[in-house]
Amino acid sequence: MSVLGIVSEVVGVIKRLQSAIQDEKYPRISEFFHDARRFILKNRQIVDTAPLQVYCTGLIFAPKDSTIRRIFNKEGPTWLRQLPKVEESWSAELQTLEGHSDWVTSVAFSPNGQLLASGSDDKTIKLWDPTTGELRQTLKGHNGCVQSVTFSPNSRLLASSSDDRTIKLWDPITDELCQTLKGHNGRAQSVAFSPNGQLLASSSIDKTIKLWDRS
């Protein structure tokens, strides 16, 4: 699936299969799908860059009690004399998203749960699929470090604040820059939408808070 470039689709298929299986009727199958999804998410970076390493690195670092490790243990490397110490079972961490080239300063989920936005000192904002971990888009436009990102209540707008003293509004569906708000005399530190989405507030190191009309 990695060679075909459809790893993200596999994660989605497994999630749909999980929903279709009745846990109480098919507990072993349900357990397998749950474990398979955890295994893919945990090893997403490996699968994307070096697919065959999943049989080596992926398996030997899988938790001791994981279903995938028990079933495919014979597929692991036989030349290793000592295996690494690993956890007994899966931890709360699902996966690690990598892509920014500098500090990540802010993250925010869209209210509809379909996107995760991250702002960084590399002056970019990245949009991720929180279900699969796939990078959807990289938004470029700020001339300084991105300090904060937030979605509007209807998930149709993404606001970002930056060291360049501006607040930018983006369309997370088309990835277009909709508007640039200027007025602060110092770094724009944070942004927040009002519950009805008609106001946007921004704070700055210039000791002011500004309210912007979004109606």
Rank of each mutant, 00 (worst) to 15 (best):
W212V: 12
L199N: 07
H184Q: 07
T131W: 00
S118T: 03
Q82A: 13
P84N: 07
V146H: 01
L83Y: 12
D129S: 08
T67F: 01
H142T: 07
S66E: 08
I14V: 15
Y26S: 14
E98L: 09
W103H: 08
D171W: 01
T166N: 04
C145E: 10
K168C: 01
D129F: 02
S190C: 15
A50M: 14
Q114A: 10
F193M: 08
V107N: 00
T131C: 05
M1N: 09
G5D: 12
N143D: 07
S110E: 06
E98R: 14
E88G: 03
T138W: 02
T49I: 09
Q95Y: 08
K168S: 01
R28K: 14
G99A: 13
E87Y: 00
A92L: 09
E93L: 09
L41Y: 14
T208V: 07
I173Y: 03
E134V: 12
V3K: 04
Q53S: 14
R28W: 12
D206K: 12
T124Y: 00
W79S: 15
V146E: 00
T57A: 15
T49K: 15
G99Y: 05
A201T: 12
E24T: 13
N143T: 10
T166W: 02
D175H: 13
L115Y: 04
I21G: 05
V107S: 01
L199Y: 06
N73D: 15
K15P: 01
C178Y: 03
F72N: 09
S118Y: 00
P27Y: 10
L200V: 07
N112F: 04
L139V: 02
N73C: 11
W128F: 09
V104G: 01
L116Y: 02
D102T: 02
L59R: 12
G133N: 05
P130E: 04
I14A: 09
Q82I: 15
K64I: 09
T96Y: 11
T124K: 00
R165L: 03
E98D: 10
W103T: 10
P172F: 01
T208F: 04
F33R: 14
G113Y: 07
Q179Y: 09
L200N: 08
Q179K: 15
R156M: 08
I29K: 13
I125D: 00
L157C: 03
L135F: 06
W79T: 14
A192F: 02
T131A: 10
L177S: 06
W90E: 06
Q137G: 05
V107D: 00
Q18T: 07
R28F: 11
S101N: 11
R38E: 05
D171I: 04
S118A: 03
E134F: 05
L116M: 04
S110T: 13
S30A: 15
K168Y: 02
L59Y: 09
I6K: 12
S120D: 02
E31C: 11
D122T: 02
